[in-house]
Simulated assay, not measured.
Amino acid sequence: MEPQILTQMLTDKNTFSFQKLKYKYGKDNFAEYFTLVSDYFYRKIPLKDFSGNHFVYTPAQVQIVSQSLKRLMQNYSGEKYGIKAMEDEITSTLSIENIETKRESVHRILAGQAPVSPSEEKAYGIKKALDFISDPNHKITAENLNKLYRIAINDYLEDDSKLPPKAMYRNDSVYIVNSSGKPVHKGLDHEKLPAYIDDLIRFIDNDCDDIDQVLKSAMIHYYLAYLHPYFDGNGRTARLLQLWYLVQKGYTSALFIPFSLFVNKNKTGYYKSFKLISENQETDNVSDMTPFLYFFTQNVFSQFENYDVGDGITEKFRAVLESGNVTEKEKDLFYFVLSNYGSGEFSTKDLEKDYRNVAYATVRTFVLKFEELGLLKSQKYGGRTKYSIFE
């Protein structure tokens, strides 16, 4: 094959669609291209498809920019997760599945209030799951994955979609259909699920596979959705498992960045990447995970630096802390404001109600002092005053 043609095929906008490459460059060129990619570019992933063949990917096509890794390495506060970020996460992960939930409802759920509708129950399930995965004592095991699924999804399903009481996974076949009702994917044979999930857990536990952990999190996300071990809620569970893996590996800031927000912004591309992998499996008998990983590097990981998590204000606050002019209560209140409101506005009454364990006088003293320190700013609306982070 001429080097020029190889370069064109590797950089073609349809490089992940083998059907389109064959049509554009011809079967002979594609055959040579596929041989070269298989011999020199593909790298095996220790996860198998339904036929027992290893998944592969092309490392050169899924490079993660260092800025994304820097953002994930940061520690934003003493909270277990960012309330504003997880509002975005919950709202978005439900929206991906066409479950519409109001942000106000999600905010109330995260503030500790009980759900009052079916959509709020689904949001409440994700909230409980976030509490579960943010606890470092909850290691990723098959048993804990079952617990995560039950508290996040299973408890809020119709009876015909729920797992049997003691079951780990579904006990029948499941099909994924498109908007027109056509089946586009069949989940793994339910009798094989225990063995395949055990392989996934071993992959998660193995730190010696020399795969970047952030990229590996996307592999884990894809693979659980590919296996489809439950009758419903597989996508939500896969996205939670990705966050859980990163938290377990020390990337606790993953719970301060809403991964699903970025997925939802390009939901079409997200589902297209699943489709491309399935099409390539059917036509060329190769399980290439690159399309999904490429989607994540381009549409999710690369967007982290654009999400406002208050980096600058955090540095400014650290400088104030070093001066010794802040009490422990004020420190906790400021961290709460960062994680609960982000760049949004709040009143003293909002903070008193949401934080709960604080007197109004303490809240009033706090906002006035932190405005003077240049960490908060105020805006009057008639007779009401709203505060927000000074950026």
Rank of each mutant, 00 (worst) to 15 (best):
E330K: 00
E330V: 00
E330Q: 03
K331V: 00
K331M: 00
K331F: 00
D332W: 01
D332H: 04
D332K: 05
L333W: 04
L333E: 01
L333F: 01
L333Q: 07
F334C: 06
F334D: 00
F334Y: 03
F334I: 01
Y335C: 00
Y335L: 00
Y335N: 03
Y335I: 00
Y335M: 06
F336I: 00
V337M: 07
V337D: 03
V337R: 09
L338Y: 12
L338W: 14
S339R: 13
S339E: 09
S339Q: 07
S339F: 04
S339L: 09
N340T: 15
N340F: 14
N340H: 15
Y341E: 14
G342C: 11
G342F: 07
S343N: 06
S343L: 01
S343M: 01
S343V: 02
S343D: 02
G344H: 15
G344N: 15
G344F: 13
G344A: 15
E345S: 15
E345W: 10
F346C: 11
F346G: 10
F346Y: 10
S347F: 04
S347M: 06
T348Q: 08
T348D: 11
K349T: 13
K349E: 01
K349R: 14
K349G: 05
K349A: 09
D350I: 12
L351A: 12
L351N: 13
L351E: 11
E352Q: 13
E352K: 15
E352I: 07
E352F: 04
E352V: 07
K353S: 06
K353I: 08
K353C: 02
K353H: 07
D354N: 13
Y355H: 12
Y355R: 10
Y355V: 08
Y355K: 14
Y355T: 10
R356W: 03
R356D: 07
R356N: 06
N357S: 14
N357G: 10
N357P: 03
N357I: 02
V358G: 01
V358R: 00
V358M: 07
V358D: 04
V358I: 12
V358N: 05
V358C: 06
V358K: 03
A359E: 13
A359P: 06
A359V: 06
A359F: 10
Y360V: 13
Y360K: 15
Y360S: 13
A361Y: 09
A361N: 10
A361S: 14
A361H: 10
T362Y: 08
V363W: 03
V363E: 11
V363Y: 06
V363I: 15
V363N: 08
V363T: 06
R364W: 03
R364E: 13
T365E: 12
T365H: 13
F366C: 04
F366N: 05
V367A: 12
V367L: 04
V367G: 06
V367T: 13
L368D: 08
K369D: 08
K369V: 01
K369E: 04
F370W: 08
F370Q: 11
E371P: 13
E371N: 12
E371I: 09
E371C: 14
E372N: 14
E372G: 06
E372S: 15
L373H: 14
L373C: 07
L373N: 14
G374M: 09
G374A: 04
G374W: 00
G374N: 11
